[in-house]
Design a protein around this nucleic acid. Structure first.
Lengths: 340, 340
DNA sequence: CTGAAAGCGCTTACAG
DNA sequence: CTGAAAGCGCTTACAG
């Protein structure tokens, strides 16, 4: 079998004995509408020849003509992060179902890197962007708005930009209620960076939930580090350096929780006997740890799928409204009832 | 600021007072060669106008003309897997540096899914593929060969197809030597699936390394599950169901190791006091676990970068030779000297 | 050194 | 219902 030249519209048209324009029209419309463009037997013949020849439309030709690439760009802090990888999978799934393809790229939460990556994506002529690394104050989003480039946010919010989110405040509240109802009285938080709305909202919800149970979260019980294991270790070091150990710990990410548990153990504190620990995201690991981790489950795949759907709506109709998903608490062995 | 029409070659040519072909030639050649196509002051003028207008070449137009898309497709088992996400980051980095863009997509190690994803990628007219989910017996690769579609492998090998790999046999040998020299005498292995060369090679190397120390690995000390935490749990369950506990465990993935440690603990076995555990990949987590994990570090980012480089060479010159990277052992607290 | 022309594969008014 | 033509933005022989 020698390599054949890929069949084009012209090839198909010639084989079917019709004009390329007819082939194009027939191939680009669905069963009902299709008959408007050609007689039933012509439609049938075109479809058959296209299939026989293995015709696949060349998207570059189409893009050039329509000024639409059916391409979207997704920008994430880092794909190595399980949460972001999952969101991208959601975007990619939904995009594929609608005939789009998605590029992903890392910003590393670095503004310069981010801008460079966005420009690369635009250089590739994506129709729009899904931005998963929005910042509480975000000049890049204002710039995109000024250039009227279509985009939606996912996961992290910024101002009133449209996107697909989880109710992070609610998530934080769930953790607070869980800890308070088990009898914990002196919790601390290891939160992600201040430029991430997710980190802020989880802490806000946590504080609010504690207050509802008559507890307060003082500033020295909050430490801002990051979302990974190393951040969890550093967070514990910082907290213990400040004074006596808390009786429980809320890490706003499962990986940070795992790092925290390791550091606590180095300090002779066992989970859950000496201190309760709660994570966030319900990573597959959470359930398989030596001490299974109490955590919050957030529908990350759905958020990714919804983000694409919003973007497509933005691209083809009027601007959509944001979508917010509700997280749930998954109690496990890393927290337990505390004797007062 | 209103939205301007994106400048094209024609816009630039008009503004610079030259023909589009001249602009194209100048913009597409580097400093030395550039002067061959236009006088120095013309070159300067073209460069300046293009910059002022913010010209960016439309890749769809170029692709149509050159039949080269400067696009590559990367197919991974699953992007949620840290190892694969890292390899993709390497491919993406190297691709971006060379003016290429990369699509990634999941195959979930499912042959049907895989084929569908490859066809989608080809439908997007990628110039070539980086395949990270090769199987020991792989009809898809034969099909790609028959269609003369350029591709390279990464991480997993298959037959003598070219790619960027790690010396997995060596990795397995390092683990065996480490355990043997610490005094462990009855190790077991929780390995990934049989269709993954990585899993097979690590086990082969392990067996070989043990033999060099006068130890043998019997078949009932090997269990085949997968690469994730759940696979680790299942692996331990299976091993313990077969008979007495081994004195050490080699899990061919850090996540499997974490799952295994959890399951061991459920059975009352502590690490490293009752049993030594070794993982693979040196995931960031390994160092931050309550009991830091002895593991093998493999240069995954380099493998990704190298895979792209090989693919580009394949695309522009003669077929390249495979590249193999060497892993190293990272000893940590999950293994210790054993008293005989 | 520079220009004019052809054509990559596609879609879409415009005719008939 | 179907066709012929124009043109999206680019590159590349071919002239001069």
């Amino acid at each position: 079998m020698t390599k054949r030249q890929a069949p084009t519209l012209r090839t198909v048209a010639a084989a079917a004995g019709v004009d390329v324009s007819t082939v194009s029209r027939v191939l680009n419309s669905g069963p009902p509408e299709r008959e408007r463009w050609a007689g039933p037997e012509t439609v049938e013949r075109i479809l058959r020849t296209a299939a026989e020849l293995g015709y696949r439309r060349n998207p570059h030709g189409a893009s050039l003509r329509t000024a639409r690439s059916q391409l979207v760009g997704v920008i994430v802090p880092r794909l190595q992060d399980f949460v972001l990888a999952t969101i991208f999978e959601g975007v990619d799934q939904a995009a594929a179902e609608r005939g789009y393809a998605a590029f992903v790229t890392n910003s590393l939460d670095d503004p310069a890197q981010r801008e460079a990556r966005v420009e690369q994506l635009l250089g590739r002529r994506v129709d729009g962007l899904v931005i998963c690394d929005a910042r509480t104050d975000d000049p890049l989003l204002r710039m995109l708005d000024a250039r009227t480039i279509p985009f939606v946010l996912a996961l992290r919010t910024s101002g009133d930009h449209v996107g697909a989110f989880a109710d992070e405040v609610h998530g934080g509240r769930l953790v607070a209620e869980h800890l308070a109802s088990l009898g914990y009285r002196d919790p601390a938080v290891i939160a992600g960076p201040g430029y991430a709305s997710t980190a802020n909202d989880r802490v806000d919800g946590f504080r609010e939930g504690l207050r509802a149970h008559g507890l307060t979260l003082s500033d020295d019980r909050v430490v801002r580090t990051g979302f990974d294991a190393e951040a969890g270790r550093a967070g514990v070091a910082e907290l213990l350096a400040r004074g006596p150990a808390p009786d429980s710990l809320f890490a706003t990410n499962d990986f940070a929780a795992i790092g925290a548990i390791g550091a606590l153990r180095d300090h002779g504190l066992r989970v859950p006997d000496d201190i309760g620990v709660v994570g966030y995201n319900d990573t597959p690991l959470a359930d398989s740890l030596p001490v299974p981790l109490t955590t919050i489950r957030s529908p990350m795949l759905d958020i990714g799928r919804a983000a694409f759907t919003l973007l497509e709506r933005h691209l083809t109709a009027e601007p959509p409204e944001s979508l917010t998903f509700t997280p749930t608490l998954i109690p496990r062995a890393s927290t337990k009832t505390v004797r007062r």
